[in-house]
Every structure is written in structure tokens, then in C-alpha cells.
Simulated assay, not measured.
Amino acid sequence: MVGPVRVAANASEKLAAGQLEERLPVKGQDELATLARSFNRMADSLQRQIRQLADLSRVQQRFVSDVSHELRTPLTTIRLAGDVLYDQREDFPPPTARTAELLHTQIGRFELMLADLLEMSRYDAGAVDLETDPTNVVRLVEESIAAVEPLAHGKGSEIRLVAPGGYFEADIDARRVRRIMQNLLGNAIDHGEAKPIVVYVDSDERAVAIAVRDYGVGMSPADVDRVFDRFWRADPSRQRTTGGTGLGLAISLEDAALHGGELAVWSELGEGSCFRLTLPRHSGDELGGLSPLPLPPDTEVAA
């Protein structure tokens, strides 16, 4: 009795680990043979369903990639025509001039959306590489804050930087980390309810961490579980300042993973949200251990 049970347990563990070809030997017509046949039918069903989902995922990824690439040519033409109209808008009647301005703005949003779709297709194809250089992370964060400060002021939020000191230089892909910061700061501005936004930077000998903390609407536990899903938004009806496709956090998560780092989130309804990016200071190192910053940091309280 013990031997067949052990065999079944080992087969279950292999199946759970992704070895979908694993099956139990069927001998005789007793209860153990019935169990083995039932197990094998279950494994066959799981294998079929997983293969169907994998095939569907590949089709969806290929579709996004193909459509994104095919849209580039007509969008370039639309951009050229829109720029001509935008440059001559002062010669148009006011309603036509306003139309040219709206067209110019929406083409810009379209280009950003297309860029996000193309970036996701590159990640799906495994066609992305890091271009790391020693970078002063505090200076990079200061530049990212300066770029969005006009937007924050327009929404009534003040952005504060808290950087107590430490090992702030790290081997990172500055372009990708700036993109992460743009997404995190943009979300904080959109959902910060005109309250202060605090950006923390800290580090130790092995890792550097950046946390963006807002004191706005926050998210429910169910929303937190889905916040990094592609095309998902906590409140699609909410008025957004920064636009976007619902891919920003998904791309940020991929950028963090490409560095060997992690992007974590804390949020509570009515208390705000905090996203923390932790990266190894040296390219190729494993992160391991604790982040230099707690989640959320508690060294600053919003006024």
C-alpha cells in the first residue's frame, strides 16, 4: 500500500513542478489502479488546458507585436500631416485651430501608447538588453522629479525628496529607471488627491532603493493584487492627467526584473500608496535580503 502511494505523491509533485508528461503506471483492476487511471485522466486534462492557454498567450503576444509594428507607418504619416496643420493653426479660424491642437495632442498620446505596446512585445520576445553604467541614483531621481513638478503643481501636490545618504551610485540602465520613475510619479500625481508626495532614496553596500509615497485614495487588497496586470486600472472612470495605456506598471515591473531587482507595492484605502523599487548596486548581482527601505517608509508624515 505504501509503495504506490509514494509513487502517486512523487508524480503529483512532478506535475505541480511543471512536468506535464508525468503519469502513473496502471496495473490490475483494484482501487489503486482506479486511482492511477483517474490521476492520469486529470493530468491529461491539465496538460491540454495548459497547452491551449499557452497557445492562446502566444497568439495574443504575436497579435500585439504585429499590430504595433504595422501601426508605425500610418502613424508616422498622420504625425507628419498633423504637424503641418499644427504649425499653421494661427492662420485657421478658432474652431479649426483648436481642432489642430487637439489632433496634435492625441497623436502624441497615440505614439506613447504604441511605444508601450512595442516595449511589451520586446519583453515577450525576450529581445531586451540592459545598457548599464555607474549612475548617481539621487541625481537621477532629482531629474525625474523636476520633469513632473509642473504637473504636480497643477494638481496641487508638492513633491519632497528624502535621501539620508549612503551608497548612491549603482550600475543601472538609467533610461529604464527614469521610465519607472515617470510611471510611479505619474500615478502618485493622478491619485494623490493634491496631497504631498514623498520620494525616498536609500541604499547600502549591496542595493539601492527608491520609494514613491502618496497620501491619496489608496487601493483595496484586491486592487493591489492586480496593480501590475497589463491594461488594468484601479478606476478606469477616473480623470487622468498623465494619460497612459494601463501598461506603465507592467513595463516597470519588467524593467525592475531585468535589473535583477524588484518592484513592490503597499496601499490602503484612504491612506495612500507606496511603490518601492529595489535594485542591486552591481550589475549581475543577486538582490537577496532586505531592501534598504521599509515598505512603506515611515520617516515622513504628510502635512
Rank of each mutant, 00 (worst) to 15 (best):
A147L: 14
P196I: 07
L80H: 10
G126N: 00
R179P: 00
V217T: 15
P236S: 03
R238K: 10
V198E: 05
T105G: 03
A11S: 09
A211V: 00
V162I: 13
S283I: 05
D133N: 03
R230V: 08
G289R: 13
E205P: 01
A9V: 04
L295G: 02
D55M: 10
L293F: 05
V2T: 06
F110Y: 13
I189S: 03
L20E: 08
E13A: 14
P4R: 02
R160V: 06
F168E: 07
D190N: 13
A125F: 05
H153E: 15
I197S: 09
A188M: 05
V7C: 04
A209Q: 07
G261V: 01
A11R: 05
R109C: 04
R240M: 11
V141A: 06
D55N: 12
N40C: 02
D204H: 11
G270Q: 04
I145N: 05
L71W: 12
M219V: 04
T105D: 14
A17N: 14
L269H: 13
L15I: 06
F39W: 07
G82E: 04
W232M: 08
Q47D: 07
S203H: 03
D55Q: 12
V198N: 02
E254G: 03
E22D: 03
L184D: 08
V7A: 11
R6C: 15
V148N: 01
D204E: 10
M113Y: 10
W266N: 04
P25V: 06
H104K: 12
R62M: 09
E22Y: 01
L161Y: 09
R160E: 03
E286W: 07
A100I: 02
A256L: 07
T241I: 13
V59P: 02
R122Q: 15
D83V: 03
R213L: 15
V217C: 05
E131W: 07
D173L: 10
S220V: 00
A43V: 05
I172S: 10
D235Q: 12
V59L: 10
D91H: 11
A211F: 04
D87I: 01
S45L: 08
T105W: 13
M219S: 07
V217R: 15
D116I: 00
I159N: 01
Q182F: 12
L20H: 08
T242H: 08
I180L: 05
L53K: 14
T132S: 10
T132L: 01
Y215E: 08
D87A: 15
V199H: 03
G166A: 09
A17R: 13
E142C: 05
A174M: 03
I251L: 11
F231N: 09
R213C: 04
D204T: 06
A54G: 10
A302K: 12
D204S: 02
V64Y: 07
R179K: 11
W232L: 05
V162R: 08
G288T: 11
L32N: 11
E271I: 00
L277Q: 08
R98S: 12
R89D: 06
G156N: 09
R37F: 02
R62V: 00
D44K: 07
D235V: 11
S283P: 01
Y200L: 09
R89N: 06
R281T: 10
T135Y: 00
N183E: 15
F231K: 02
L117P: 07
H191L: 08
D87K: 04
